[in-house]
């Protein structure tokens, strides 16, 4: 099976190095590229030109769903389907429905947030070219990488290599898909 070319992977050794390299790759106008870091490097999002994450939109949707579910469930069961007087309380009141609606808001928000994170990251993805590289074996310990994909419209092997080595890459390797 002929291995297809996926992209370039360049190693950097420190957080400042990858920060500056990312700025250069961003300024060179690449779109399909990424940084591989062992921890979330503070400020790297800006250096990569990433927009604010969309996860909170999922969370908001989940939260609203949860609260509505709670309130309508308690109304339906207590005031509509089986009205039953307990403790002299009305069949339905937002007050005593609040604790459970509140918990469901949180529960659904949590589900939606995590689902949102997985969907936006397109995870789980146990197979990935980056994971196939020998480099990654130490990658999540203390090394930082820039990966530029071949499918980027601006991609040109030599120019990309030149850019990365100019940015201070310690080692550049090619990844197969």
């Amino acid at each position: 099976m002929a291995a297809t070319f996926y992209g370039l992977m360049a190693r950097f050794d420190t957080a400042p190095e990858i920060y500056h390299a990312a700025q250069q790759v961003r300024d060179a106008g690449y779109k399909n590229w990424d940084c591989i870091t062992p921890f979330p490097v503070h400020g790297l999002d800006g250096a990569m030109g990433l927009r604010r994450s969309n996860v909170p939109k999922f969370s908001l949707l989940g939260g609203l769903t949860g609260f509505t579910t709670g309130m309508s469930m308690i109304w339906f069961t207590g005031a509509f389907d089986y009205p039953l007087i307990v403790g002299g309380k009305p069949y339905f009141s937002p007050l005593f429905a609040f604790p459970i609606s509140y918990e469901l808001t949180i529960l659904f928000t949590a589900f939606a947030t995590i689902a949102g994170m997985f969907i936006l990251n397109w995870l789980p993805q146990h197979y990935h070219p980056v994971l196939k590289s020998k480099e990654i074996l130490r990658g999540l310990d203390d090394a930082f990488y820039v990966v530029i994909e071949a499918r980027d419209p601006k991609f040109d092997l030599n120019r990309a290599k030149a850019l990365l080595s100019q940015a201070g890459a310690k080692e550049i390797s090619e990844l197969e898909a």
Partner: peptide, 22 residues
């Protein structure tokens, strides 16, 4: 299949923050 991608970290950190927030 976590691979330390910063694009992932960005969403991951936001999700973590939201989870902390809730």
């Amino acid at each position: 299949g976590w691979r330390g991608s910063n694009r992932h970290w960005s969403n991951y950190e936001m999700a973590y923050l939201v989870l902390a927030g809730i």
